[in-house]
């Protein structure tokens, strides 16, 4: 594709965007709803878990404790890179009518997509939280203890220091969720205006040669990612200024 054709496509994409195709709006809202819910629930589950794993004392004398720690961390690291299509497939196989959870009737629904993304997002929030908490000066915990904090209160003091890291966990998770396509396509079925998201529609639009629509959706996706990252950056700068 020459540069000219590319620019022309981009221009048409933006024009399409500004005409505010109501379907595009619906798709965008569904995308935000699915990824937003998955990230929210994923953070609620993943951040406390990551904080617990990152903060608990693994320096036990027993080698078994250390081995358990090693295995746990390896599992989390592996799951952080879980292939979305595999997750989508497993969720689909569980939720389909003949699957063990078929009675819930959730296959090909936004809920199925949320479940898929939740599974993808939880290890990410856990993993990023563990490293955020691990990056906090060890002296902070002892400082809190020396001022009379209980272990729990000291743990909270450490979490507070890791604030930006925890925020990063949420942002990274959101980035992974909103750009995911393979998993939700399988579990959600990519049903137009029911389970179609920006990413699945990009795939579809390319498939039928509608590059302009694909680019429009891509620009919206990018804009969302950009907006989210602006918020993160503002918070980071505010924190760094101190």
């Amino acid at each position: 594709m020459t540069m000219y054709v590319f620019l022309e496509s981009l221009f048409n994409a933006l024009r399409l965007f500004f005409l505010v195709n109501p379907d595009v709006l619906d798709i965008t809202l569904l995308t935000l709803r699915v990824s937003g819910t998955a990230v929210l629930l994923g953070s609620i589950a993943g951040i406390p878990t990551g904080a617990y794993l990152g903060l608990r004392e693994w320096r036990g004398k027993k080698t078994t404790i250390r081995i358990v720690n090693l295995i746990l961390r390896s599992i989390i690291n592996t799951f952080m890179g879980l292939p979305p299509v595999v997750v989508g497939l497993v969720v689909f196989l569980l939720l389909r009518y003949e699957g063990p959870l078929g009675f819930l009737g959730l296959v090909f629904t936004p809920t199925a997509m949320i479940i898929t993304q939740l599974i993808l997002v939880i290890p990410i929030t856990i993993g990023v939280t563990i490293s955020a908490v691990g990056g906090v000066d060890k002296a902070i915990r002892e400082k809190a203890l020396s001022l009379g904090a209980t272990n729990r209160e000291a743990a909270f003091a450490v979490l507070k220091e890791a604030k930006i890291g925890l925020l990063t966990a949420v942002i990274v998770a959101f980035g992974a969720a909103i750009s995911e396509v393979g998993g939700i396509m399988i579990a959600g079925g990519n049903i137009w205006l029911k389970t179609s998201t920006l990413t699945t529609e990009i795939v579809d639009a390319v498939q039928v040669g509608e590059y302009e629509l694909a680019l429009t959706l891509g620009v919206i996706l990018l804009a969302i990612a950009f907006a989210i990252n602006i918020i993160l950056t503002i918070l980071q700068i505010r924190e760094a200024k101190h």
Binding site: A139, I140, S146, L147, G148, A157, K160, E161, K163, E239
Partner: peptide
């Protein structure tokens, strides 16, 4: 510890 106050050799403060 709640009866004690401690000042560490290396200054450590909360990011606040």
């Amino acid at each position: 510890r709640r009866k004690f106050g401690m000042v560490f050799q290396r200054t450590v403060l909360f990011n606040a």
